[in-house]
Nucleic acid binder design. Structure first.
Lengths: 244, 244
DNA sequence: GAAGTCATTTTTGTATACAATGAATCGACG
DNA sequence: CGTCGATTCATTGTATACAAAAATGACTTC
């Protein structure tokens, strides 16, 4: 529990910044996203409280909100843990994101003002540069920022909020299931290609580009079938017909 | 604050049923859905605590979760209130639900086993009967149950959970914006038509039926531009022509 | 009479104490 | 030696006390 993560937080506390449940939510979310808090990590209330310099009341509210955001598992009488979505849920999350982000970019195609379009292209450009110089954390940062901006720009705010949630959840599972052999989950040209379609104002082409992009991303992951508790239960629970 | 709603709850408490934050969430959600707690209603923590016979700790957790579910507004240092989504948000919620529920039924078409299909048809039948005898609460109950079952049956659980959320939110705004002249928001034949397509296994037809159903439902609402505070200002500022 | 200001009250924010639950450890027994 | 069981420890669940903030209302002043 005493890792680099603590230092950031304690620095912030020392700097006199007011800590509220929102701060804790943000910090933990970021830490999970960047895998400084790997899935399964225990998050005891008192420990978190000490780290942030607040009491359990505040921590509890933060954990409840993180549970609503699918970032942590909060089960009765048990310590909260960083959630580790299953392979199946990972596939389903990607499918949901394809649907929602596809719709968002279809709505957005041809509707962006110059400032918004430029901001998106800037993020794409910076992602490319970060990739060129091999700065993977920066690349992820800009890639996330681009998608996050799309969610914010969505004319349908309900869909936008749903997309924000799905971006977070896919990021978590990407960190979780990334093939160790791959240095990066960078898909060359995908983001610029999307921006071209957005500028051209072709909703269905934009939707297709997003769909392909997310499918390619999912294929970069190692989602081979893996043993889960439930499968084991099913197998051990009821004897097979051959067993009598 | 002393309405029929309290009685139900106090009965439950008296019956010795254990009250937890989940119970409070359920109860409030139901009460909001059935408009026993109309939008804007103040939900002070102590009052709620007294009603349910628990302390503020439990109530607070429930309110936080209800806020995450978009049922209540929880703003710092202010009493939580039942949320009243704007007209714009209502339209966006319907659009989101068309997208998600359309996808869910497309996934479901031709994939339902007999038990599931039968359960759905039973709900549809009961809705029709309730409508025939003019029992609107029962009709709503069965209509909601049908859609809720679709969400549960979704092979993609992530989409299913999103749909559950959207069903709740649309129900709230239907109660909020229903034309007073209409006795019911019943659309004759829509649900049986959907079930036919599900059984026939035609994903795209099922998607279309859902899309049309939800558009028709939205059109039953009174979503004309309404006075917000600013509009009120404008109206009260200048007397109407007939008023002199 | 209207507007601003200050005290009062209501309500939420936070910390903490105690109860209850679950996990872990150690020991006894087969 | 392994397994079952009870005790101990760690951790969450709940209630409550106090602090801080916002809403209310009365009062003063112009």
């Amino acid at each position: 529990m005493s890792n680099a993560w603590q230092e950031d937080v304690q620095a912030a506390v020392a700097a006199g910044i007011r800590i509220s449940d929102q701060h804790i939510v943000d910090k933990v979310r970021r830490a999970v996203l960047t895998q400084r808090l790997p899935p399964g990590t225990r998050l005891p209330e008192v420990t978190l409280g000490e780290v942030f310099g607040v009491s359990r009341s505040v921590v509890r509210k933060a954990l409840t909100r993180l549970a609503a955001d699918h970032v942590v598992d909060q089960r009765p009488n048990q310590v909260a843990r960083v959630r580790a979505p299953s392979i199946e849920e990972t596939r389903e999350t990607f499918a949901a994101r394809r649907l929602v982000e596809g719709e968002v970019v279809a709505l957005l195609a041809g509707q962006l003002d110059d400032a918004a379009q430029l901001a998106l292209e800037q993020e794409a450009q910076r992602e490319i540069e970060a990739h060129r110089r091999g700065d993977e954390p920066a690349r992820i940062e800009h890639s996330l920022a681009l998608h996050h901006r799309l969610a914010e720009l969505s004319p349908n705010r309900v869909l936008g909020a749903m997309l924000t949630d799905l971006i977070l959840r896919t990021s978590i599972v990407i960190a979780l299931y990334k093939r160790p052999s791959l240095a990066s989950c960078y898909l060359d040209g995908d983001h610029p290609r999307l921006l071209t379609q957005l500028r051209a104002g072709e909703p269905e082409r934009a939707r297709e580009v997003v769909d392909e992009h997310l499918r390619a991303l999912e294929n970069l992951l190692d989602l081979g079938p893996r043993e889960t508790e439930t499968d084991l239960m099913a197998i051990l629970g009821r004897p097979s017909p051959a067993e009598a």
